[in-house]
Design a protein around this nucleic acid. Structure first.
Lengths: 353, 353
DNA sequence: CGCATGCATGTGACCGGTCACATGGCTGTT
DNA sequence: AACAGCCATGTGACCGGTCACATGCATGCG
């Protein structure tokens, strides 16, 4: 009995055409097609036209996978982050995606949930794979920093935010959070507040021996420069509930008249705690947020905060990652500096009787 | 003169070992290594052990790219969405990523910014590539729906949210927004409001002839069932500014006592507009949001809203996409139904003098 | 005891691109 | 006129996996 050999692969509906198919249709070799795809100058214009026509008529699209395999690395980026929802992270991600899409490049996301060695290793292995392409590590917090430090040197990666350890050959791009926090603190001091309390985001001082985060440092800078007392730092989680708890503590202390919050979400929790304690904002206590999330202009009171160009940071990191991936020169990042946005939540301190 | 042939590739630092290297180290063929990697039962236990030892000592990781090329499709997913920052989208994305990571699979993101044919085509081409793996289209809005409809049948894709067109063979998973909106509307009617106004998110009725969005339909359902008048729909953009404008319009009308907002961001803009118009919430006007974004419990007043399990939706879509990718059976999605969360922004209507 | 059967393993081809090098035609120079 | 040199293009190998099929050895059965 004669058995008809079955096709090697399942007959995929509409098997995608390859450069060989295009070559046959155009009457040239596959290499010439490859040259056209890569915009090589050594192709006669008429040949190029013929190839392009064949590409068009066959609906050919080059395979990113095959190209990545041949080239050794995917032409795309993977973003490593500890979070995708919080505003600073999400907005950075948005800038990254936007820039990647503009270049026709793929973007992947990998979340790292804990700094445990096993998970850090998994993450590092993941982005070590060639299909990850260039890597951008969002190092706003200890998790991102842990991944950054564990990354083998040969992985083409850049960091968003300054690395905790002094530069070890990795490109790092950061917004000037230190300056921003100093400006915000100064604004409160200028209004007449004796000092400014600070409810910090988790990243700040989260790890033993870590370089103090920019926001924290800026706050201290301004207080020190003004000769104001430096109150004890209030730690806080990313969740608003813990910000509320921090706000309760501050509300119970009568000499608290100005609070710099690590971000706008924290400001929201603090504000509600003050409200529940019967304290008026800004009548009794002034608060300043950080990030300028979209809703903050519509709160009651509208929040005075610092606008951060996270999208710009994302775009800059993308271009840096591509430079790292292709071995090109590092472009000069163009970042919009942070800007204090004055709204309704800050005012002079109440007069003491 | 004798020219020493240069190495074919640039000497990549620490060239990653391949299965051939592992095979050599373990004294077996590359196919046996492949079998071990794929957990084939036809490998002798001792051979398997030897191979695993070689893998361990060489630090070998299989190349996702090579596997994808050979298999015809990447073992991962790509999410197509019109937005990554708005809560509903971001939370769905988070659920997708979480589920993908749990399975050790890669996740990519592709944003589609306009429904113009050229951009839709680019997006479709992008996910048509084998490296995209399984595709999840977040079809909360006309952009997502446009991509979904333009997707060739052979692309393994599923939709988050019900497709506008009646099922055309695509798996679609949605939260019960219609029921949720009806519940929220009913809550307001139960409080004694004569009717409920609705400020809708852009997706609702955005396209000519589109099936009305679930939220819109549910709102109408409840009003109709109660025999309440159905006010004119107020359209609104995704930006809070337009929600503020919608709120201004509603504030100027004295018979508006209850507003169902298309999402919590809209509720924020509407609430501020009411505040600026001197209307108290909930004293004069009750408002209900949608989504239960993290901060809504801390607003003043805390927002009554509908909690939506977007993360669960994301997880369900991931599993559906994998089933589509591998040809396995579609699992039954396990979704937490929406839940009305009663807080401070709703109350009985003011008494008329 | 001979041969079919099954299991563990190996060999070759292939996925769809790119790189290195070869080839052949045309032009320019001496 | 002969040869060098450039240009356009073609050929073979390779990236790192997987699939189809072949092989060799041990076992089971009549």
């Amino acid at each position: 009995m004669i058995v008809t050999p079955t096709p090697r692969r399942a007959p995929r509906t509409a098997a995608a055409p390859s450069i060989r198919d295009v070559a046959a249709a155009a009457g040239v070799s596959y290499q010439t097609v490859s040259r056209v795809l890569n915009e090589s100058p050594r192709v006669r214009p008429e040949t190029r036209t013929a190839v392009l026509a064949a590409i068009e008529s066959l609906g050919f699209r080059p395979s990113r996978t095959a190209r990545a395999l041949s080239l050794g690395r995917a032409r795309g980026i993977t973003v490593v982050t500890s979070n995708t929802v919080l505003y600073g992270y999400a907005a950075t991600l948005q800038g990254l995606e936007e820039a990647a899409r503009a270049e026709g490049m793929a973007m992947g996301i990998r979340v790292v949930e804990s700094a445990e060695p096993a998970e850090v290793k998994q993450t590092v292995d993941y982005v070590g794979d060639a299909s990850a392409g260039g890597v951008v590590v969002i190092a706003f917090d200890p998790l991102g920093i842990a991944v950054l430090e564990a990354l083998p040197e040969h992985v083409p990666a850049v960091a968003a935010a300054e690395p905790a350890a002094p530069d070890r050959g990795r490109v790092a791009i950061a917004l000037d959070e230190r300056r921003a926090a100093a400006d915000a603190t100064q604004h409160l001091l200028d209004l007449g507040h004796r000092t400014v309390h600070h409810v910090a985001i988790p990243s700040e001082g989260g790890r033993e021996g870590a370089v103090p985060g920019g926001r924290l440092a800026g706050w201290r800078d301004a207080l020190r420069a003004a000769g104001a007392p430096i109150p004890e730092l209030i730690g806080c989680g990313w969740d608003i509930r813990s910000a509320y708890a921090a706000g309760q503590r501050l509300a119970s202390s009568p000499d608290v008249t100005a609070i710099l919050c690590g971000n706008d979400d924290i400001a929201q929790g603090v504000r509600r705690a003050l409200y529940d304690a019967g304290k008026d904002v800004p009548g009794d206590v002034s608060i300043v947020g950080f990030d300028d999330i979209p809703g903050s202009a519509y709160w009651t009171p509208a929040l005075t905060t610092v606008r951060m160009d996270f999208a710009g940071l994302g775009r800059a990191c993308f271009h840096a990652a591509v430079a790292e991936l292709t071995g090109g020169p590092q472009p000069e990042p163009a970042l919009t500096p942070p800007a204090l946005v004055l709204r309704e939540s800050t005012a002079p301190p109440p007069h003491h009787p």
